[in-house]
Write a protein that binds this DNA or RNA. Sequence first.
DNA 1: ACAAATTTAGACACTCTTGTCTAATTCGTC
DNA 2: GACGAATTAGACAAGAGTGTCTAAATTTGT
Lengths: 229, 229
Amino acid sequence: MKLHVSPDTFPPRGHEAKRLSIVDSAATVFCREGFAGANIDLIAAEAGVSRQTIYNHHGDKEKLFVAVVRDLTERCNAGIFATIATFPDLPGDLEADLIGFAMRLNQNCICNRDGKFLRKLIQTEGERYPELFAEWREQGPGRTWPAIAARFARLAYGGYLAIDDPDVAARQFLGLVNAELQTTFMLGGSPREDEVLQSATNGVRTFLRAFGKRRSATSVEKQSALASA
Amino acid sequence: MKLHVSPDTFPPRGHEAKRLSIVDSAATVFCREGFAGANIDLIAAEAGVSRQTIYNHHGDKEKLFVAVVRDLTERCNAGIFATIATFPDLPGDLEADLIGFAMRLNQNCICNRDGKFLRKLIQTEGERYPELFAEWREQGPGRTWPAIAARFARLAYGGYLAIDDPDVAARQFLGLVNAELQTTFMLGGSPREDEVLQSATNGVRTFLRAFGKRRSATSVEKQSALASA
DNA sequence: ACAAATTTAGACACTCTTGTCTAATTCGTC
DNA sequence: GACGAATTAGACAAGAGTGTCTAAATTTGT
């Protein structure tokens, strides 16, 4: 009698797989509808799970929401630190290397599913859960920005850049590299890869016009415009 | 018949005054609670109006929301264009003048009540009303960004700046000037004035390191690093 | 002061959602 | 194959919110 109608998904694998599936679907729905607009039945349907299972796992709509944010924060942070590890400490072509770094950061941490969702949840529900998002602020920007700043400081110390304040430079790097994506980010969309590349390229070029030394032998051509002053 | 030149002086009671009060309170509540979480009774209470009056004026929760966004877009745009009119076309001290412009833009258009609310509504409900926010995109960034770019182009033509692409430069100017306010913006907060000034100052300095000519006599020191060629 | 228009408070029907409960079914594991 | 744990569908109570309606009170124009 019981006809298990699960058209797209695999049959229930295990206990943890179900938990993951729930948090995943919850993230999707919370982002699309907002906390108040999100519907537990919809989350359950999207996760291919009965409503009761959600309550068994998380107890409460609010607890589920907190679990979603914690999960996203953790995964995003891991991604960012993994990407920071690829920062070019000994650049061959500084411009190309920084563009590559910016692209990895955007594609793997900011424009991907987790990054988009976390950003949206912070924007929409940040004021309602001050302690939760204060935690994000400490764990996220509070740790990643200094880490990026340290890498820029190392480049400056190595003679590749002329930087006064590495913290300011790091924030400005991020601002420049994302300068052309702001509107898309606001509306919750995902920029196409060529848009990301365009923004990163323009951003890095301006960054290097401000902070670059013509030292780094390989990219002499790019610096020539600067030198033509 | 209703052609009265009446001196609609006080806020207390009037037909239009009530309409304004409703839209105002609705903006506050929609921003705080999101569309789904917003409660008509709460809006009515906050506006000092009965629930029925809201339905008389706007007919519908959704129509009320649209009225709020249209209202905010219009007022914000007016503010931005008014501020663009103060752009320094013939700068005395370029750095100081650009910092002043950035401060006016931030304080009067981005960090003020209307700007904060509009930004939040776009972020939270943008995906649910594609046509409404497409309209905003055209009327807002679609018109203000080129206007700012034109001003930068004029500065470049006047020999004050070395800019390749004025549109890119304009977006990067905004990105730099707000680089240190991103986290605060995300969480829906209002940065303190000294934070805004700090970000604007740092942003403009970097902008001028990238695009400035050492022409502008007053800020020679900052350009010296660049000039060390 | 009078009449028309507007606003108000409250009741109301209706829908939707949360979270609980139960009994049947399925899964994991031995 | 069998047993305990997890999952399921469905019904359910309780609460909240929207939008309508009405009769009374208030404001507004003349």
